[in-house]
Structures are given as C-alpha cells and as structure tokens.
C-alpha cells in the first residue's frame, strides 16, 4: 500500500522533446518560499484546528489532533526546516501526509495548488549543506519564474524519529 502511494505519478507528454516524466506535486508555502510534495503522499488538507500538546514530546512535535477517531501527530514544519516561527492565520493548513512509515500532519502557512513538473526540469540543490535538514530537499524546479523546493517527505524524520512519533 505504501509503495503504491509513494510511486511517482508520471504523465508522459509525447510532444515534449525531453521525453521526461511528469510528476504531480502539491505546493504549499512556508515563510517566503514555495515547496512541493509528491501528491501521492498527501491524503488530505485540513483547516487549522486546535492541536493538543503532548507533554514530553520532541520539540518538533506540535501535538496531536483527532482525525475522525484517529490520533495524528502534527509536526512543526517551520522548526523542522529551521525557519522562524509564525502566527497561525486563516491560511494556515494541516496537510495529512502518508509516508512509508506512518501518517502524520505537517503545519504549513498555506496550500497553493497541484502542479505537474517535468523531471528534466528538476535540478539538484548544491550539496553544501551540513545540517540534517538539507537532506529533506530532493530538488528545485522553475515554475512561473519561481523556484519550487521539492521535499522528500520520507526523509522528513529519521528512523528513530519516526519510531518516536509512532510511540507518542
């Protein structure tokens, strides 16, 4: 099930000279930049609701929410990416995502759209980052004269962190 969800939804365009695969991404905004995650990993997008804090939880865990009877852990995405904190607004959303480990929620400033990107247009980021968060980025792509930063959600947490979140 997880493999099917994580599989890349490729759209072949016969008119494309690059003959590259098209990937569909859900874009969201954090701070001043736009990020994209694989659409197949996004279950749903929720408006912001109260998040119950969990005592003793790691700093990157905002708390838990009740999603139709299921407890979902919400991650502080800004803190995870090393960005400054921000106030919750009307545009704040909780994206419920499904990695190959488990279902979690990530808090984002806003959710923009779903876009198709040619894999040939995706470039690697410079391998100069020394922080762990640099591993979250799987590439950048130009979209309407703006660069989308593409996130690999499976690397958002390490093995131990996934385990820790599961045991909350």
């Amino acid at each position: 099930m997880a493999d099917e969800n994580n599989s890349v939804q490729a759209v072949y365009d016969p008119n494309d000279g690059n003959k590259g695969e098209f990937l569909r991404w859900v874009t969201f905004q954090l701070d001043r930049e736009i990020y994209g995650v694989n659409v197949m990993q996004v279950r749903e997008v929720l408006r912001y609701s109260d998040i119950a804090p969990v005592p003793g939880a790691p700093a990157y865990v905002l708390g838990i929410i009740n999603l139709r009877g299921n407890v979902v852990t919400v991650i502080d995405t800004r803190m995870r990416f090393g960005l400054p904190t921000a106030e919750v607004t009307e545009n704040t959303r909780i994206m419920i995502i499904e990695s190959d480990k488990q279902v979690i929620g990530i808090l984002v400033d806003s959710v923009a759209e779903v876009v198709d990107l040619n894999t040939a247009d995706i470039d690697d980021t410079p391998n100069v980052g020394t922080e762990e968060s640099a591993k979250f980025i799987c590439g950048v792509c130009n979209r309407n004269n703006e660069l989308l930063i593409l996130i690999d959600l499976n690397k958002l947490l390490s093995e131990d962190e996934w385990q820790e979140v599961a045991n909350l």
Partner: peptide
C-alpha cells in the same frame, strides 16, 4: 532577481535563482 532561500545550507549560501533556465 528573486533569490530562493534553501534551508539547511551554510549561512554564506544566499539562495538559488533561475537565469535563462539555469539554476
């Protein structure tokens, strides 16, 4: 033009920009 900030990079790395299709 617009510089895109990439998190997790050294502080001397300002960001990325697209110039004529080249990052």
């Amino acid at each position: 033009t617009k510089l895109t900030y990439i998190f997790g990079q050294p502080n001397w790395f300002l960001g990325m920009t697209d110039i004529r299709g080249k990052k």
